[in-house]
Amino acid sequence: MNEEIIIAGFGGQGVLSMGMTLAYAGMVEDKEVIWMPSYGPEMRGGTANCIVVVSDDKVSSPIINKFDTTIILNQPSMDKFESAVKPGGNIVYEANNVMNPPTRDDAKVFKIPAAEEAKKLNNPRTMNMIILGAFLAVKPIIEISSILEALKKVLPKRHHHLIPLNEKALRLGMELVGKD
């Protein structure tokens, strides 16, 4: 198994923390992982993205321009990264934040109404976990239990009481796949 992923959206949508959670969870399962953020001006309000690689083998390059899965949380990121998915790969995207759906016919496309569902959970910030859940339904490369273990590392202690809510969001996301 070697999964190369890019997660892209606005700063503040939980792009970097979603990627970090996934990377931590991979390490919990003793896989080789890389988390590579785009850093700099885009951290201060513009678009943000991170590359995550989860692999059974040592990873050579952390610099990648074709991905098995692209997870897209806004329109500018869709414009930029739709073409970056490998033929036969997956595009998982957030329905409310992307106006123009992808046009690639050689990739599997998953439209997830995560923002809307997060509102129903009374916490819009769970949007990224709903998307992560959806991704794990599309590509079950990591166990949910490992994600929960990872959240203990990624979330500061004062937010650990939110882990059950995050689990709910993850499982909700998994159920949303294939429903659109």
């Binding site: 990377a23 390490m27 080789e32 992982v33 890389i34 988390w35 590579m36 850093y39």
Partner: peptide
């Protein structure tokens, strides 16, 4: 370099 400084690995 900045990439090795910023990226996470085990």
């Amino acid at each position: 370099d900045g990439a090795l400084g910023q990226m996470m690995e085990s």
